[in-house]
Amino acid sequence: MKTLRVNHLLGIKDLQPEEIQLIFETADHFKEVINRPIKKVPSLRDITIANLFFENSTRTKLSFELAEKRLSADVVNFSSSSSSVNKGETLIDTVNNILAMKIDMVVMRHPNPGAAHFLSTRVNSRIVNAGDGTHEHPTQALLDAYSIREKTGDVAGKKVLIVGDILHSRVALSNIYCLQKLGAEVKVCGPSTLIPKYIKALNVEVEPDLIKGLNWCDVANMLRIQLERQGGGHAYFPSLREYTMMYGLNKERLDRLNKEITIMHPGPINRGVEITSDVADSDHSIILNQVENGVAIRMAVLYLLASKIERP
C-alpha cells in the first residue's frame, strides 16, 4: 500500500513524482464522490481543521472549506482582516492560540514566502500551504496538472506554456515544479520585466513571442495580471492595453493556430486583459473543470495527510 512521505504539504518541490501520482489516484475516487447525490464521506469526522487566511482569497478558501466538509471534518475559519493580527500579534502566537483549541490540521495562506515552512517547524500540527507570498501554491499546481491529465490523458510529454506575470506568481513556480516532475515540457512567456532571473536555473525556456509560444504548446496557462502586486500602478509594463495587445489571448489569435490547444486560467480572470471572454468561455477552456477538480485534489491531500496523524 502507498502513502505520502511528507507530513505537510508545503510545496511541490518536496514531493516525489510517485507522491503526486498517489494524490491524483486518490483524487479520482473523490471526484466520483463529489458527483454523487450525497457528496459526503465520513473519513475525517474526528479531525478538526483550521483555515488561516492572512491574505484575501475567495475560491481557494471556498474550495478548501468545501473539501474539508465533504470529508466530514470540523472546520474553523480565520481571516486576518477581522483578527488580532491587526493588533500586532505574531504569526506563532496567533497559531499557537488556535492550536490550543485542539486543531489537527492547518490550511494557511500568508503573504510571506516560507510562512508555511516556518510554521511546520514550530507547531505540532499538519500544515497545508494554500499559498505563501510569491513562493508556492501547491494545491493549485496539483489541480492544474490533474486537469491536464483529465483532458489529455497524461501529463508526460505535454508542452505547457505559462503566460503572464511569472515574477509574482506562486502558481507559476509550483506549476513548473509539478509539470516537470511529471515529465512535461514547460516554457514561460511574458514581458521581460515579469520574468524572474532564476528561471533559467529551473530549466525553463523563455519565449518572448506569444504567437510562437502558442504554436509550440499543447496547453496554455494564462496567469492573472496581479495588479495588487505591481506596487504603485503598472510599474512593470507601460499600460494594461499594451500588455493585452502583446500577451492577451483572444479568439483571433487562437483561430490562427493550425492546431487545437487547451486553455487554462487559475482565476480570478481579468476578462479582456490576459484572456477575452469568448476564449475563456469556449470549448478549449477547462477553467471550470479546474475549479471542480480543485475540490477533489484538496480532498485527496487532506485525506492522505490526515491518515498520518497519530491517534491520541
Binding site: 500500500m1 502507498k2 502513502t3 505520502l4 486518490t26 479520482d28 475516487h29 466520483e32 464522490v33 464521506v41 465520513p42 473519513s43 470529508l71 485525506y303 492522505l304 490526515a306 491518515s307 498520518k308 496523524i309 497519530e310 491517534r311
Partner: peptide
C-alpha cells in the same frame, strides 16, 4: 472512506473505484 479503521493502520487505506 466509510471504514472504521481509518488512522488505525500504518498506511492510508487504499480506495477502489
Amino acid at each position: 472512506f466509510y471504514r472504521d479503521d481509518f488512522r488505525r493502520k500504518e498506511k492510508p487505506l487504499e480506495a477502489s473505484p
